[in-house]
Design a protein around this nucleic acid. Structure first.
Lengths: 213, 213
DNA sequence: TTGACCGTACCGACCGGTAGGTATATACAC
DNA sequence: GTGTATATACCTACCGGTCGGTACGGTCAA
């Protein structure tokens, strides 16, 4: 993976991201990817041994790209953990520009179709998610410590919730053909996190056990 | 649409919901649907004139099914609008049982793949969403009135946010192979709504305009 | 000259859709 | 009742395009 990002191979991977995010995985033909990359099948099968192999490589590529994007993002500048967390949410909102396939998630798109039919690909996408969650979890845990939170929820569950809102927003955006729903959902999420930590350290009713039935 | 839900046709529609929620739309072969329904292609093409025709009919069927499900749901029993809203979230959580294809959303699954490649199908799914949003919006508006809310957010945006969390949860669930993430996200959503309305009528900083850049 | 890289040409399986036939129910004339 | 006609519902068999994957030849740098 890490050693040589060959130029043509990289072009094929970039093309894969674009085409899959536009058409979904199953509907993506290898020749679509080749055309997008300006290459032919001969080149394709020199670099990848199958469509599934491509998907796995693309998932890995996507993960590396995400890590890079968020590592270079400005939201790290906030001094305290809570500030960084809120800035992350704002950053995700700021990413919602351009055409839909430009900002929606490759892994999220694929996992919808592949979770039963292509377990390996699905697992690769799940790793992308896990990485994001772990990254967020660190800041959340620190923010909880800063505020002395003894909450009825875990850092991990809030990290997952942030991903949930992000990806759910992509679906609404696709349905409505506009990113405004996704942006407004991130606003609600931002407000939620503020309210959560504004509550202070007191333990609230743990929702998990307040179910009536 | 409305006149006769012919038995075989209905079986084909049910089969479509199941297969598509398992494999996605593109990967769903007409023969898969036939096999699931215990019929053959001849029968299929007697009832539907193409795969896309099936998808449109299934989206309509799914919408009717949703309306029916939520109309019959117990969450309407709460006397006040806020109580109904919270009970709705709990109800969505309670639906997360059984196998993944049993509780994930047909429309949400399809829109991911079809939003660019099959605009008509995508539009049909968007109508499903719009119906849900409208339904929620009514209760939210009432709850806002009850609590004299002058919030920096709209009833519509909160309704969409609820859908966002629901559908985002499905993606996480597919990635992790478990519904627990989705359930915990709905817990967070429940808590958010409580906190929002516990704030009382004061106007908070409207997030939409608090962006730094 | 060797091997990485990339192109053209092609194969074969798969799958959406068609063609054409059979079974059954209903309607009506006689 | 019996025969004819028509419509619905369903089947088997097949066509034709599509697409993942292969075979193989050419080019160019080391």
């Amino acid at each position: 993976m890490t050693p040589p990002p060959h130029e043509s191979k990289k072009r094929l991977l970039e093309a894969t991201l674009k085409v899959v995010r536009t058409k979904g995985y199953s509907a993506t033909r290898i020749e679509d990817v080749c055309a997008e990359a300006g290459l032919t099948k001969g080149s394709f099968f020199h670099h990848f041994k199958s469509k599934e192999d491509l998907a796995l490589a693309a998932a890995e590529y996507w993960r590396a790209l995400s890590i890079e994007t968020f590592a270079a993002a400005p939201y790290h500048k906030a001094g305290d953990a809570l500030g960084r967390l809120l800035a992350y949410v704002d950053f995700r909102k700021a990413l919602l520009t351009g055409d839909l396939p430009d900002f929606t998630c490759f892994a999220g798109t694929i996992v919808q179709e592949a979770y039963r039919t292509h377990p390996d690909v699905s697992a690769a996408c799940a790793r992308d998610f896990a990485g994001q969650i772990k990254m967020l979890e660190a800041d959340i845990r620190e923010a909880m410590r800063d505020h002395g939170m003894r909450a009825g929820w875990t850092a991990e569950s809030l990290a997952r919730h942030i991903l949930t809102v992000t990806h759910g927003g992509f679906i609404l955006a696709k349905a409505e053909g506009s990113a405004t729903a996704a942006a407004e959902s991130l606003d609600h999420l931002h407000r939620y996190i503020e309210l959560l930590f504004a509550q202070g350290p007191q333990r609230r009713t743990g929702r998990a056990s307040s179910q009536k039935h």
